[in-house]
């Protein structure tokens, strides 16, 4: 079931189109992996969907409801969770306070401790004292206790050790298995394609590939070409 759909989405920064005519679908129980080189427009796309920056034209629909004119806060309450890049913890709060701040009445902290058991022992630790991986778990957990329908995750692995990234990827897969729609922007392309279902590759603001993750994961040459385009071919 499609939870989130964008149609001909255009997002501009300082009047310049950074996302051009993008059609993205995120379905319940699936991970849509969004790949692309730096500057391709991935983060801008997520920011447009969650309402951080305005949409120039096109549509964003959550379960069929138009979100274009809805504020970021109301989109969050409607079910769009956005895990921004850069581990945006509330550093002065403990792990548990970070989770409680957005706790939905129907959600419980136990669900998060079950998903990331590492956090249970660290629940009373000030979150700025946590490791990078633990901080990322807190941020993902904090998004989940708001009972979202779709989770947008932006570059969660930046600056983390591969073993930690592996751990986080398993957690993200679990989210989809629990029925959430996940949109995952990731630089660790191979790891993301391993856990993902639907793949999109973005270049210069447009999608240059849409297909299943397994096919793209098994064709590294195509992935290389999709990332770099003509530059890749020349090299």
């Amino acid at each position: 079931m499609n939870i989130l759909e964008t149609e001909n989405l255009v997002i501009k920064r300082m009047g310049i189109p950074v996302v051009r005519e993008v059609n993205l679908v995120a379905s319940s129980g699936e991970i849509s992996v969004l790949l692309g080189a730096n500057g391709a427009g991935k983060t801008t796309l997520l920011e447009g969907i969650s309402g951080i920056i305005p949409i120039a034209s096109g549509s964003v629909e959550l379960e069929g409801n138009d979100m274009v004119k809805v504020s970021a806060g109301k989109r969050a309450l409607a079910g769009i969770a956005h895990v921004e890049q850069g581990r945006t913890i509330f550093g002065s709060m403990t792990t548990e306070e970070n989770l409680k701040v957005a706790l939905h009445p129907d959600a419980s902290l136990e669900e998060i401790y079950e998903l990331f058991p590492e956090l249970l022992a660290r629940k009373d630790v000030q979150s700025m004292m946590l490791s990078g991986g633990e901080q990322q778990m807190v941020v993902i957990g904090r998004a989940l206790v708001g009972r979202p329908k779709v989770v947008l995750i932006d570059e969660m692995s930046a600056g983390l050790a591969p073993v930690v990234v592996n751990r986080l990827m398993k957690g993200v897969r679990r989210l989809a298995d629990l029925g959430l729609a996940v949109v995952l922007v990731e630089q660790f392309a191979n790891l993301a394609l391993e856990i993902g279902d639907r793949a999109y590759v973005m270049r210069r603001g447009s999608f240059v590939y849409e297909g299943d993750c397994a096919t793209l994961g098994n064709d590294p040459d195509q992935l290389h070409h999709l990332y770099l385009g003509d530059i890749g071919e020349a090299a």
Binding site: G73, H82, T88, F90, S92, M93, V101
Partner: peptide, 20 residues
């Protein structure tokens, strides 16, 4: 808690549905 979230990271707080 919500006020502290607002003071630390207003945008992150808004993205959590906190009435910033």
């Amino acid at each position: 808690l919500q006020l502290r979230a607002l003071s630390e990271r207003p945008m992150a707080a808004e993205l959590l549905g906190i009435p910033v």
